[in-house]
Amino acid sequence: MKTALGSLAWLAWGMMLVGYWAPWVEGDGAGLTFSGFDLVPFLVFFQRAGYGPLIRERLWAPLWGLSLALAILALSDSGKLPHIGRRLLWALAGLWSLATWPPYPELLNPLSIEGRGGFLGGLLTMFLVGTLPLWPAGWRRRLALALPWAMVGGVGPELVQIWRLWIQHLGLSPWIGWGLPLYGLGLALWALAWWRASS
């Protein structure tokens, strides 16, 4: 990847990183303001109450996407990063996917109804990150180009459900937090960077 395009991809990744942990949904109080990552445990309450259809683990897709994107960048960067630095970032990307694993002692039964989505998704992401060095560069570019579409397809329907459930069962009209547009802009820049790199 050329330096200018690599810089754009790194900028896009940084925007997605900040955007995911910034507010996605803002309610009337601080207790009803959630980042993309925080929405997953919050939706447990809706799920336990039987409201749905709801697949809350889809909101962890951006974290798995960030992990894959970091690994792709680390393996593709031909700029100033030394070889050992790229390898460390690649290893960090693999470990990062463990963030969605259930905590101990729930980890002793990782396929429980509440923990299996995060466990299996994190395990698959770690496997993909671990095998990326074996992929041809063209395949890694295709994966990079597919990531934004996968994120939108996974997260979009869940956000629509959140808005509907929030209004219907909490009687509140949530606002879009600044993190969601920032994350979306990061996705768009990421797609642009890899489209230009592939053309």
Rank of each mutant, 00 (worst) to 15 (best):
T100K: 03
R141V: 04
P174K: 08
A91S: 08
L75P: 04
L170M: 05
L159H: 04
W24K: 00
L187I: 07
A150C: 13
F46G: 00
L81V: 11
P148T: 01
L159E: 06
G29I: 14
L68H: 04
A30T: 12
A197H: 12
L189G: 09
L187W: 10
L111I: 11
F45P: 02
L192R: 13
G177C: 06
L70T: 06
L147C: 08
G121L: 07
T131D: 07
W135K: 00
R116C: 01
L120E: 02
R87F: 07
L5W: 12
P105H: 12
L11P: 00
W190D: 02
M15P: 00
M15W: 14
L111T: 05
D77N: 09
G130M: 06
M15C: 07
A150S: 12
F45D: 14
L73C: 01
W178D: 00
P174E: 08
T125M: 02
L180M: 11
W60I: 02
W135H: 00
L170Y: 08
A4F: 11
V152F: 12
L134Q: 08
W166P: 02
L170H: 04
A99H: 11
G50C: 13
V40W: 10
L95A: 15
I84V: 04
G118Y: 15
W194P: 01
G6P: 04
A93D: 07
